[in-house]
Nucleic acid binder design. Sequence first.
RNA 1: GGGCGGUUAGCUCAGCUGGAAGAGCGUUCGGUUUACACCCGAAAGGUCGGCGGUUCGAGCCCGUCACCGCCCACCA
Length: 719
Amino acid sequence: RNFIELCDRVVTEDEKSFKDLWQRLGLSIDWSQTYATIDERSRFVSQLSFLKLVEKGEAELREAPTMWDIDFQSAVAQAEVEDREKDGAFYKIRFDVQGGDGVVIATTRPELLPACIALVAHPEDTRYSGLIGGMAVTPLFRAPVPVIADEGADPEKGTGILMVCTFGDAADIEWWRQLGVPAREVIDRAGRIVPAPWGEAPWNSNDPDEAKKHHDKLAGLSISQARKEIVAQLGDAGALVGDPQNVRRPVKFFEKGERPLEFVVSRQWFIKVMDKKEALIEQGRKIQWHPDMFRARYENWVEGLNQDWCVSRQRYFGVPIPVWYRVKPDGSVDYDDLILPAKENLPVDPAAEPPPGFTEDQRGRAGGFMGDPDVFDTWATSSLTPLIPTGWQDDADKLAGLYPTDLRPQGHEIIRTWAFTTITRSYLEDGSVPWWHVAISGWVLDHDRKKMSKSKGNVVLPTDPLDEFGSDSVRYWSASARLGSDATPDPNVFKEGKRLVTKIRNAARLVLGFEGPSGEPTHPIDMALNARLRALVQDVTDRWEAWDHAGALSATEAWFWTDFCDNYLELVKTRAYNQDPSALGTLRSALDVILRLFAPFVPFVTEEVWSTMERSTSIHVSSWPKADDLPETADTGAFDVAVSLLTQIRKAKSDAKVSIKTPVDRLIVKASARDLTLFGSASDDLLATANVLAHETVADEKAEAPEAYVELGEPEVKV
RNA sequence: GGGCGGUUAGCUCAGCUGGAAGAGCGUUCGGUUUACACCCGAAAGGUCGGCGGUUCGAGCCCGUCACCGCCCACCA
């Protein structure tokens, strides 16, 4: 109880840290709608959903070999298991065969020899065909074991014949089931060798006394100690063939564990998934994956499932499994006789409350009850996240409006856990999909592109760049990474974000600083600017709708920086200072649109600017710009001609290494008649911006683009 | 062993249904221009991993190989 209280305190503190961080990042969260995976509502949803599966027969209690972490002292699910490459050694061990020379098997786990229940060879492996159907005898323990044929045995591996033990790996479980013999479990739940009653079933031996003698030296040893001991014994007995051969092979670990997993027989709750692989793949296809390639990973995982989902955990902090068991008159627990709570009493804690119809003093007594001591796997509750806040079982209207939800955002490393289990639970609940879209983000890697981990000490806290560069910069950096691709914290990109923020503020200061009334755009440059902005809005909107937020950001940024600031603002400045209504109206409306395009990326600076524009509401509740709302002017030609000439004049000044405001004594524009007309319609802006004192035009239909010939005057000398 | 990505300028990455190689940073040269020096202008820099194929034309399509990364797989 004290431990759970401590957990609750840590959770509360962590929640506060997350909330602080997310608010600082400006995430638009409705803080009145939060939930926690172990709060009252979540316990209710988790327990009720589970009970419905029990009723439907989709969840059941089984006593079966299950992957077990000997340090955590708990069962684990397939999804929490990972392979790690470990060094080991192949030991070759000779078994006796009645009327033969014996047979040599290879194993990396000699300590499981007392648990050996059979030998297996491939049916077409002629080396061993004479043995199939006969019996072999284990060394040391003198246990007779059948030799069987199965295609699962690989003639290429080891000696081509292997021993089946209870239990060395998942394949052993399969063969054990086929054989239909009792398990001879040699490793206990703490990872130590059990004392064995050789001679008593199932510990049969041709020489029980000899077997016991050997086994007594193993009992109580850890797995690694037992391995050394039995290798020594085998050596002494002359049953070890040749020297051990070093191998590097994958070993299964609990993802948080430090010692290899063992298979032990225990009683666990399972949710059936093995019979639903096809349906679950089908469900996955009803969902849009962004990027789409991650659907393959999901299907890959489902296809590779090899056991049902074990949802019970032998832990303390979690959602309790809402089940009691009847205790028989003889004091033993009848695990087939479940006592389930009523829906209206949920959530319950069977460890603290008696089941309906019982009193607490009957706990553990003959004729009484026993509460299930376990809690659910965290994914057993997290898999219900689409149901927890949407009114499931509680508010039908709300559920109808919110479920299936639109989007699940998550990382790719938890496709096999969070995404998979969520799709599974929704399917089991009512055949639905939990959401229509799933957006998979990549990882934030360290500077060397390695995954961050506490043990490596290469963790970058988000608060550090937030302190140094500000929230908008950090958001800019993260928005620059495309869905599904990894990113590294890059100071250059944080700086870029900061520059953008400054640029937005400065451009707004200029635009909002002009005085005078706004008017309809009538000047060709202004009308062209609107046409370009219209195209941008369409482009950016399309990118968002294609789930390409990074593309939306870069398109917006490129337009803002180049088209708007570097070109348009420079061209229009003189007219704006002269209070031309067309210029002022265009500047102000363009700023309004560009701020809204930027708002999802840099919410703080855009809101700050917006608030100075005499707006009554936040920019973040304003409508998204629509291309159709912008005046449609087809021709951007005047702008293109002006920018082209401006660029050429700038280059002339740059080549001459003079100031940009150096006057142009004489400008000759050579261009097609059409371009000259466009130039004429908007020459006032260009001539003012480039400081052109005199100009003339030359018509030349061969000129594909306008050409500028520039004669520079003396730079003005500041007195 | 199976699956999925990636390999484009010194660095980080864009390149849509195939049609004359792009951005930012960095580098070089220049510029106090009254929104911004957290700025402005200009420039240099790439046999688009290798090889083969399809095509009038390939960074993009097909085949193959090589590296890099991730996911998965019965530990004999």
